[in-house]
Design a protein around this nucleic acid. Structure first.
Length: 586
RNA sequence: GCGCGCGUAGCUCAAUUGGAUAGAGCAUCGGUCUUCGGAACCGACGGUUGGGGGUUCGAAUCCCUCCGCGCGCGCCA
């Protein structure tokens, strides 16, 4: 009989350590009495040496209390494990994470914060799970908007060697504005009189000219004109400098090697149309190529009536590349939730044509992780006081400053371990603390929901925050350092889980691997935060009731130091899943 | 209009994916400590999980319906 045993940690300590919920589900299936079935299971189970107590309770729960020896032996295995108990992966294929997604000539804003740190965190989780991971930064580095910016900069004889991101941004917005013929288009749309339209035509003559210029530039870029390509590469370089800097600040593994933008796929777009046309999945509609779906009205547009390609065309080329060439059996798109419909269409089209397969034919799972918006306290998209979009740099700078201010203030206390450290050292710790606050606040919530960005409550460093976890870690590190014992001596010691607080902490430590597997399965990064917060709370409870350095006897002291060491290691590893550094003092 | 998503304590969020008495953090009030680092710990207050109906041993979670909010809807990316 194959069935999920439904073994869960007990919801309440008075019920024991674990509860088995399988009897109730099984009884429903068979139409028998759940309590009687639970009794039967209990009779058949051999729990000698594993459980002290097993009993049926409530409608058919089986409550299990583990023996001390069993818990200790599991914990000893965990302490010796290089992967913290995480088993080798079942799936040999890669995981592809689409993250960051900046656009050339545009500033990073808070939306990119989410796309970057969520993607990086998931990548770290899959790396912990032993998977090969590709972090793919799908830059918006191709197409008319870029050509418009390039054309404008060239007309203005900009010095490309000295361009700043602000210059680019200014040119980008200027180009958008000066080529806009919105009023004229509206006049045609509304069938205005010829006189009115003629007036608009004259008025919009410069816009037409600018657009013509941009299109010519685009053709030169597309045909590989060396001069234009060189300038285009410069635009990308200037844009990406901010990304690399933000990545350093955020402790995110995103660099030049992860750049694979729209331009990378430019030679594959015609092939996408061909493939869909040949397979009969795409048809012509009003001069454009579309992929219709059986279950919905609107099709997916993959080629414009003028022959041009679209967002969806590039995405389809990217899907095929990621599954077939990068060998991804899981491809996660970390892109904001508003693009849900788009990705549903793209993924369905990819499945229709069979591109959701790795080279060896394994099925690939395509997932859009649509994250929610970052809101201000007014519940509207986050803006500065003057109404501008918050740039990511401004936000990170402020987080680091406030972290540093707090760390510096506390270092003023002569008893603080940070007392007397040089200011650059304090700034380093302060930045780690400020960034931890921002990242934890983002990653520990439900990713799909909008959230209110409130730097004040994040930087309070009290309660459910990243710095709270860092602090717990620093305190443990401090105990270990003060003990005077070598890591080898601690590693050689035996666990002795005598007190209830010790056993509860141990049981939670044993769940680390399962938590990591759960995050890999559900992509819910908040599980990491929940786990670590609980771990810190259980450690604090232990710390409160069980003296370590002043333990009654040397064996207990060493056993508790060993419990501290494994807790510290798992806390640090868990924080690393968020890309949060855990300083030894703060 | 059609489609998708979301409504949980005063505020910001959880709830081990259908489990036992819905939990934390802020805020408010009270307590612990001659500290293993007080960025801590313990307690109190606070709930008809938007309303109503249904499914079953059991629902914040699944289904239906209404209300409210947000987002997206063919030649931009």
């Amino acid at each position: 009989m194959e069935s999920d045993p439904q073994i869960r940690p007990s919801g309440n300590v008075k019920f024991g350590d674990f509860q088995v919920n399988a009897a109730m589900a099984l009884a429903k299936e068979r139409g028998t009495n759940p309590r009687a079935l639970a009794e039967e299971i209990l009779k058949a189970a051999d729990v000698a040496g594993i459980a002290d107590k097993c009993e049926v309770a409530g409608p058919g729960f089986i409550n299990v209390t583990l023996t001390r020896a069993c818990t200790e032996s599991c914990l000893t295995k965990l302490a010796a494990s290089e992967t913290f108990g995480v088993p080798a992966p079942m799936d040999p294929h890669a995981v592809v994470v689409d993250l960051c997604g900046v656009n050339v000539a545009k500033q990073m804003h808070v939306g990119h914060l989410r796309a970057t740190i969520i993607g990086d965190s998931l990548a770290r989780v899959f790396e912990r799970l032993g998977r090969k991971v590709w972090r793919e930064n799908h830059l918006g580095d191709w197409g008319l908007p870029i050509a418009m910016t390039l054309a404008k900069l060239m007309r203005e004889r900009a010095d490309f060697a000295r361009l700043s991101l602000d210059d680019l941004n200014h040119a980008y917005r200027g180009a958008q504005k000066e080529t806009s013929t919105a009023d004229l288009d509206a006049a045609y749309e509304n069938h205005c009189g010829p006189h009115r339209i003629a007036e608009f035509e004259i008025q919009y003559e410069p816009a037409r000219a600018a657009m013509e210029d941009a299109k010519k530039t685009l053709v030169r870029l597309q045909s590989g004109d060396p001069e234009i390509v060189r300038l285009w590469e410069r635009l990308i370089e200037v844009t990406m400098e901010q990304v690399y800097e933000a990545a350093r600040t955020l402790n995110v593994k995103v660099g030049r090697e992860n750049n694979r933008g729209e331009s990378f796929f430019r030679d594959r777009l015609a092939g996408v149309i061909d493939a869909f046309a040949k397979s009969g999945l795409a048809k012509s509609d009003r001069g454009a190529m579309v992929v219709p779906f059986a279950d919905r009205e609107r099709p997916l547009l993959i080629q414009k009536s003028d022959g041009g390609f679209l967002y969806a065309t590039t995405d389809l080329a990217a899907v095929r590349f990621r599954t077939f060439e990068l060998d991804g059996s899981l491809v996660v798109y970390v892109v904001d939730a508003r693009q849900r419909d788009h990705f549903k269409d793209v993924f369905d089209a990819a499945r229709l044509i069979g591109w959701n397969k790795t080279a060896d034919g394994a099925e690939s799972t395509l997932v859009h992780l649509g994250f929610g918006a970052v809101l201000g306290s007014d519940k509207k998209p986050l803006k500065t006081r003057s109404g501008e979009n918050f740039t990511l740099k401004d936000l990170l700078d402020e987080a680091c400053e406030r972290g540093t201010a707090e760390v510096t203030r506390r270092a003023g206390d002569p008893n603080a371990p940070t007392h007397g450290l040089p200011s650059d050292e304090l700034a380093k710790i302060g930045a780690a603390v400020g960034i931890a606050a921002v990242k934890y606040a983002d990653l520990s919530g439900d990713l799909t929901k909008d959230y209110v960005f409130d730097l004040d409550s994040m930087i309070t460093f009290e309660g459910d925050t990243g710095p709270y976890l860092q602090y717990a870690h620093a305190r443990i590190a401090s105990i270990l350092a003060k003990s005077g014992e070598s890591p080898a001596a601690i590693a050689a010691a035996s666990f002795a889980l005598a007190e209830p607080a010790e056993k509860t902490l141990a049981l939670h430590l044993l769940r680390y691997a399962q938590m990591t597997l759960d995050v890999g399965r559900t992509l819910e990064t908040n599980r990491v935060g929940l786990y670590l917060r609980t771990l810190a709370e259980l450690f604090n409870a232990f710390y409160q009731s069980c003296p370590v350095l002043k333990a009654d006897d040397p064996a207990t002291r060493l056993a508790r130091l060993k419990l501290c060491a494994i807790t510290r290691a798992i806390l640090a590893d868990g924080l690393s899943l968020y890309g949060i550094v855990a300083p030894d003092r703060m």
